[in-house]
Protein backbone atom coordinates (compact mmCIF):
# COMPACT_ATOMS: atom_id res chain seq x y z
CA UNK A 1 0.00 0.00 0.00
CA UNK A 2 3.02 2.33 -0.23
CA UNK A 3 1.50 3.90 -3.33
CA UNK A 4 -1.37 5.35 -1.36
CA UNK A 5 0.68 6.96 1.44
CA UNK A 6 1.86 10.56 1.69
CA UNK A 7 1.03 13.04 -1.07
CA UNK A 8 -0.55 10.40 -3.23
CA UNK A 9 -2.85 9.36 -0.42
CA UNK A 10 -4.06 12.92 0.08
CA UNK A 11 -4.68 13.31 -3.63
CA UNK A 12 -6.58 10.01 -3.68
CA UNK A 13 -8.75 11.15 -0.78
CA UNK A 14 -9.53 14.44 -2.55
CA UNK A 15 -10.41 12.46 -5.68
CA UNK A 16 -12.69 10.18 -3.67
CA UNK A 17 -14.36 13.24 -2.12
CA UNK A 18 -15.04 14.75 -5.55
CA UNK A 19 -16.47 11.45 -6.79
CA UNK A 20 -18.56 11.03 -3.63
CA UNK A 21 -19.98 14.56 -3.73
CA UNK A 22 -20.83 14.24 -7.43
CA UNK A 23 -22.48 10.87 -6.98
CA UNK A 24 -24.47 11.84 -3.89
CA UNK A 25 -25.67 15.09 -5.46
CA UNK A 26 -27.00 13.09 -8.41
CA UNK A 27 -28.83 10.73 -6.05
CA UNK A 28 -30.38 13.68 -4.19
CA UNK A 29 -31.55 15.10 -7.49
CA UNK A 30 -33.06 11.78 -8.51
CA UNK A 31 -34.93 11.23 -5.22
CA UNK A 32 -38.65 11.60 -5.85
CA UNK A 33 -38.14 12.32 -9.55
CA UNK A 34 -37.98 8.80 -10.95
CA UNK A 35 -40.00 8.48 -14.14
CA UNK A 36 -42.00 5.24 -14.32
CA UNK A 37 -41.75 5.07 -18.12
CA UNK A 38 -42.17 1.63 -19.58
CA UNK A 39 -42.98 -0.02 -16.25
CA UNK A 40 -46.52 1.44 -16.38
CA UNK A 41 -47.16 -0.48 -19.60
CA UNK A 42 -45.57 -3.63 -18.18
CA UNK A 43 -47.72 -3.50 -15.05
CA UNK A 44 -50.90 -3.05 -17.05
CA UNK A 45 -50.08 -6.20 -19.04
CA UNK A 46 -48.56 -8.34 -16.28
CA UNK A 47 -51.83 -9.97 -15.19
CA UNK A 48 -52.04 -11.67 -18.59
CA UNK A 49 -49.00 -13.81 -17.76
CA UNK A 50 -48.00 -14.96 -14.27
CA UNK A 51 -49.59 -13.70 -11.06
CA UNK A 52 -46.12 -13.24 -9.63
CA UNK A 53 -45.22 -9.97 -11.31
CA UNK A 54 -41.50 -10.38 -10.73
CA UNK A 55 -41.46 -13.74 -12.50
CA UNK A 56 -43.09 -12.06 -15.50
CA UNK A 57 -40.53 -9.26 -15.45
CA UNK A 58 -37.52 -11.46 -15.10
CA UNK A 59 -38.48 -14.38 -17.34
CA UNK A 60 -40.82 -12.81 -19.86
CA UNK A 61 -40.26 -9.08 -20.55
CA UNK A 62 -36.51 -9.33 -20.17
CA UNK A 63 -36.16 -13.10 -20.48
CA UNK A 64 -33.25 -13.04 -22.93
CA UNK A 65 -31.31 -10.76 -20.63
CA UNK A 66 -31.96 -13.24 -17.82
CA UNK A 67 -30.61 -16.01 -20.05
CA UNK A 68 -27.32 -14.15 -20.31
CA UNK A 69 -27.45 -13.43 -16.60
CA UNK A 70 -27.80 -17.18 -16.10
CA UNK A 71 -24.83 -17.69 -18.37
CA UNK A 72 -22.85 -15.35 -16.09
CA UNK A 73 -23.41 -17.74 -13.18
CA UNK A 74 -22.40 -20.70 -15.32
CA UNK A 75 -19.30 -18.91 -16.64
CA UNK A 76 -18.41 -17.77 -13.14
CA UNK A 77 -18.38 -21.38 -11.99
CA UNK A 78 -16.40 -22.60 -14.99
CA UNK A 79 -13.82 -19.83 -14.51
CA UNK A 80 -13.54 -20.54 -10.78
CA UNK A 81 -12.89 -24.20 -11.52
CA UNK A 82 -10.39 -23.13 -14.17
CA UNK A 83 -8.41 -21.18 -11.59
CA UNK A 84 -8.24 -24.35 -9.54
CA UNK A 85 -6.97 -26.33 -12.49
CA UNK A 86 -9.91 -27.67 -14.50
CA UNK A 87 -9.30 -27.25 -18.21
CA UNK A 88 -5.96 -25.47 -18.12
CA UNK A 89 -4.30 -25.75 -21.53
CA UNK A 90 -0.74 -25.53 -22.78
CA UNK A 91 0.86 -25.32 -26.19
CA UNK A 92 1.98 -28.80 -27.23
CA UNK A 93 4.97 -27.37 -29.07
CA UNK A 94 6.24 -25.17 -26.29
CA UNK A 95 6.46 -26.54 -22.74
CA UNK A 96 5.90 -23.97 -20.01
CA UNK A 97 5.72 -24.00 -16.26
CA UNK A 98 3.38 -26.81 -15.10
CA UNK A 99 -0.24 -25.68 -14.71
CA UNK A 100 -1.70 -25.05 -11.27
CA UNK A 101 -3.49 -28.07 -9.81
CA UNK A 102 -5.14 -27.81 -6.45
CA UNK A 103 -5.17 -30.41 -3.73
CA UNK A 104 -8.40 -31.38 -1.98
CA UNK A 105 -9.45 -29.35 1.02
CA UNK A 106 -8.10 -30.79 4.30
CA UNK A 107 -10.99 -31.14 6.67
CA UNK A 108 -11.97 -33.87 9.09
CA UNK A 109 -15.23 -34.54 10.80
CA UNK A 110 -14.49 -35.78 14.31
CA UNK A 111 -16.58 -33.78 16.73
CA UNK A 112 -20.06 -34.22 15.32
CA UNK A 113 -22.70 -34.10 18.02
CA UNK A 114 -25.37 -36.76 18.12
CA UNK A 115 -28.09 -34.28 17.21
CA UNK A 116 -26.24 -33.12 14.11
CA UNK A 117 -25.35 -36.68 13.20
CA UNK A 118 -28.96 -37.81 13.14
CA UNK A 119 -30.67 -34.57 12.09
CA UNK A 120 -28.17 -33.51 9.43
CA UNK A 121 -29.42 -35.88 6.78
CA UNK A 122 -33.14 -35.15 7.32
CA UNK A 123 -32.31 -31.45 7.24
CA UNK A 124 -30.57 -31.86 3.91
CA UNK A 125 -33.50 -33.85 2.55
CA UNK A 126 -35.91 -31.19 3.79
CA UNK A 127 -33.83 -28.52 2.11
CA UNK A 128 -34.01 -30.47 -1.12
CA UNK A 129 -37.77 -30.73 -0.87
CA UNK A 130 -38.01 -27.04 -0.07
CA UNK A 131 -35.95 -26.32 -3.17
CA UNK A 132 -38.38 -28.33 -5.29
CA UNK A 133 -41.31 -26.45 -3.75
CA UNK A 134 -39.67 -23.09 -4.44
CA UNK A 135 -39.02 -23.87 -8.08
CA UNK A 136 -42.47 -25.24 -8.81
CA UNK A 137 -44.23 -22.25 -7.27
CA UNK A 138 -42.15 -19.71 -9.15
CA UNK A 139 -44.96 -18.20 -11.16
CA UNK A 140 -47.42 -17.80 -8.30
CA UNK A 141 -45.30 -16.79 -5.34
CA UNK A 142 -41.87 -15.54 -4.50
CA UNK A 143 -39.06 -17.81 -5.58
CA UNK A 144 -37.83 -19.44 -8.71
CA UNK A 145 -34.93 -21.16 -10.33
CA UNK A 146 -32.14 -19.07 -8.81
CA UNK A 147 -33.43 -19.58 -5.30
CA UNK A 148 -34.07 -23.29 -5.80
CA UNK A 149 -30.54 -23.80 -7.07
CA UNK A 150 -29.05 -21.97 -4.14
CA UNK A 151 -31.18 -23.88 -1.62
CA UNK A 152 -30.31 -27.25 -3.14
CA UNK A 153 -26.58 -26.53 -3.24
CA UNK A 154 -26.89 -25.35 0.35
CA UNK A 155 -28.12 -28.87 1.16
CA UNK A 156 -25.09 -30.26 -0.66
CA UNK A 157 -22.74 -28.04 1.33
CA UNK A 158 -24.54 -28.90 4.57
CA UNK A 159 -24.07 -32.60 3.92
CA UNK A 160 -20.41 -32.06 3.07
CA UNK A 161 -19.83 -30.11 6.29
CA UNK A 162 -21.67 -32.64 8.48
CA UNK A 163 -20.50 -35.90 6.99
CA UNK A 164 -17.22 -35.01 5.29
CA UNK A 165 -16.18 -35.92 1.81
CA UNK A 166 -18.05 -39.23 1.84
CA UNK A 167 -21.39 -37.58 2.49
CA UNK A 168 -24.74 -39.06 1.41
CA UNK A 169 -25.18 -36.42 -1.33
CA UNK A 170 -22.17 -37.30 -3.42
CA UNK A 171 -22.45 -35.38 -6.64
CA UNK A 172 -19.91 -36.65 -9.14
CA UNK A 173 -17.85 -34.49 -11.49
CA UNK A 174 -19.77 -35.52 -14.56
CA UNK A 175 -23.14 -35.18 -12.87
CA UNK A 176 -22.50 -31.61 -11.77
CA UNK A 177 -21.17 -30.46 -15.12
CA UNK A 178 -23.91 -32.33 -16.94
CA UNK A 179 -26.69 -30.83 -14.87
CA UNK A 180 -25.29 -27.32 -15.35
CA UNK A 181 -25.01 -27.85 -19.09
CA UNK A 182 -28.54 -29.26 -19.22
CA UNK A 183 -29.83 -26.25 -17.32
CA UNK A 184 -28.22 -23.52 -19.38
CA UNK A 185 -28.69 -25.44 -22.61
CA UNK A 186 -32.32 -26.07 -21.75
CA UNK A 187 -32.94 -22.41 -21.02
CA UNK A 188 -31.31 -21.45 -24.31
CA UNK A 189 -33.33 -24.01 -26.25
CA UNK A 190 -36.61 -22.89 -24.64
CA UNK A 191 -36.31 -19.88 -26.93
CA UNK A 192 -36.70 -22.17 -29.92
CA UNK A 193 -40.48 -22.94 -29.87
CA UNK A 194 -41.33 -19.26 -29.98
CA UNK A 195 -38.63 -18.61 -32.56
CA UNK A 196 -39.80 -21.35 -34.90
CA UNK A 197 -43.51 -20.52 -34.71
CA UNK A 198 -43.57 -16.71 -34.46
CA UNK A 199 -40.03 -15.62 -35.37
CA UNK A 200 -39.49 -14.02 -31.98
CA UNK A 201 -36.87 -15.76 -29.84
CA UNK A 202 -38.23 -16.85 -26.49
CA UNK A 203 -41.74 -15.60 -27.24
CA UNK A 204 -43.93 -16.92 -24.44
CA UNK A 205 -46.11 -19.16 -26.62
CA UNK A 206 -47.96 -20.61 -23.63
CA UNK A 207 -49.17 -17.23 -22.40
CA UNK A 208 -49.44 -15.80 -25.94
CA UNK A 209 -50.27 -12.26 -24.84
CA UNK A 210 -50.33 -10.93 -28.42
CA UNK A 211 -52.19 -13.83 -30.04
CA UNK A 212 -49.56 -14.64 -32.64
CA UNK A 213 -48.72 -18.23 -31.66
CA UNK A 214 -50.46 -21.24 -33.28
CA UNK A 215 -53.23 -22.63 -31.07
CA UNK A 216 -51.61 -26.04 -30.80
CA UNK A 217 -48.46 -24.53 -29.34
CA UNK A 218 -50.53 -22.43 -26.99
CA UNK A 219 -52.23 -25.63 -25.86
CA UNK A 220 -49.01 -27.61 -25.39
CA UNK A 221 -47.11 -24.95 -23.48
CA UNK A 222 -50.02 -23.11 -21.89
CA UNK A 223 -52.56 -25.68 -20.67
CA UNK A 224 -50.37 -27.61 -18.22
CA UNK A 225 -49.59 -24.43 -16.31
CA UNK A 226 -52.97 -22.72 -16.50
CA UNK A 227 -53.96 -20.82 -13.35
CA UNK A 228 -57.33 -19.50 -12.32
CA UNK A 229 -57.82 -16.39 -10.24
CA UNK A 230 -61.12 -16.43 -8.35
CA UNK A 231 -62.38 -12.94 -7.52
CA UNK A 232 -65.83 -11.67 -6.67
CA UNK A 233 -65.91 -10.11 -10.17
CA UNK A 234 -65.56 -13.59 -11.61
CA UNK A 235 -62.96 -16.21 -12.42
CA UNK A 236 -59.99 -15.14 -14.55
CA UNK A 237 -57.58 -17.48 -16.29
CA UNK A 238 -53.98 -16.89 -17.18
CA UNK A 239 -51.03 -19.08 -18.06
CA UNK A 240 -47.40 -18.36 -17.26
CA UNK A 241 -46.52 -20.43 -20.33
CA UNK A 242 -42.84 -21.28 -20.55
CA UNK A 243 -41.92 -19.43 -17.34
CA UNK A 244 -42.15 -22.54 -15.09
CA UNK A 245 -40.04 -24.53 -17.56
CA UNK A 246 -37.43 -21.78 -17.69
CA UNK A 247 -37.34 -21.81 -13.91
CA UNK A 248 -36.63 -25.53 -13.82
CA UNK A 249 -33.81 -25.09 -16.33
CA UNK A 250 -32.55 -22.16 -14.30
CA UNK A 251 -32.53 -24.31 -11.16
CA UNK A 252 -30.48 -27.02 -12.90
CA UNK A 253 -28.05 -24.40 -14.11
CA UNK A 254 -27.56 -22.89 -10.67
CA UNK A 255 -27.17 -26.32 -9.05
CA UNK A 256 -24.56 -27.21 -11.66
CA UNK A 257 -22.72 -23.92 -11.33
CA UNK A 258 -22.59 -23.53 -7.57
CA UNK A 259 -22.16 -27.28 -7.15
CA UNK A 260 -19.11 -27.12 -9.42
CA UNK A 261 -17.56 -24.37 -7.31
CA UNK A 262 -18.17 -26.34 -4.07
CA UNK A 263 -16.94 -29.53 -5.66
CA UNK A 264 -13.76 -27.96 -7.01
CA UNK A 265 -12.92 -26.36 -3.68
CA UNK A 266 -13.73 -29.39 -1.54
CA UNK A 267 -12.25 -32.14 -3.66
CA UNK A 268 -9.64 -30.11 -5.55
CA UNK A 269 -9.08 -30.74 -9.22
CA UNK A 270 -6.48 -33.11 -10.53
CA UNK A 271 -6.42 -34.53 -14.01
CA UNK A 272 -6.27 -38.28 -14.26
Amino acid sequence: MNELRGKRGILAVIALLIIGIGFLSSLFELAGNVRPGVSQIYNSLAHLVAPNNIATWVYDWRGYDTLLETAVIYVGAVVSAMVIGRGVVQMKSCPQEPPAQSKPLEFHIETLTVILKYLGLPAAILLFSYGIMVVTASSTSGGGGFQCGVIMTAAYLLAAIFYGKNNPIRFGKRFIIGIGAAGLGGYTLLGLPGFLTTGFWQYNIGADVWGIAPSIMRFIFGEPFRLSLVLKEGVFFSSPGIIPLINVAEAFNVIGAIGLIYFAFIYGWQEE
Binding site: M1, E3, R8, A15, L16
Partner: peptide, 12 residues
Protein backbone atom coordinates in the same frame (compact mmCIF):
# COMPACT_ATOMS: atom_id res chain seq x y z
CA UNK B 1 -2.53 0.10 -6.21
CA UNK B 2 -0.88 2.32 -8.75
CA UNK B 3 -3.55 1.59 -11.35
CA UNK B 4 -6.21 2.17 -8.71
CA UNK B 5 -4.65 5.51 -7.80
CA UNK B 6 -4.58 6.75 -11.37
CA UNK B 7 -8.06 5.38 -11.91
CA UNK B 8 -9.38 7.49 -9.02
CA UNK B 9 -7.56 10.60 -10.25
CA UNK B 10 -8.88 10.22 -13.81
CA UNK B 11 -12.41 9.54 -12.60
CA UNK B 12 -12.37 12.55 -10.28
Amino acid sequence: NRVLYWFLIYFA
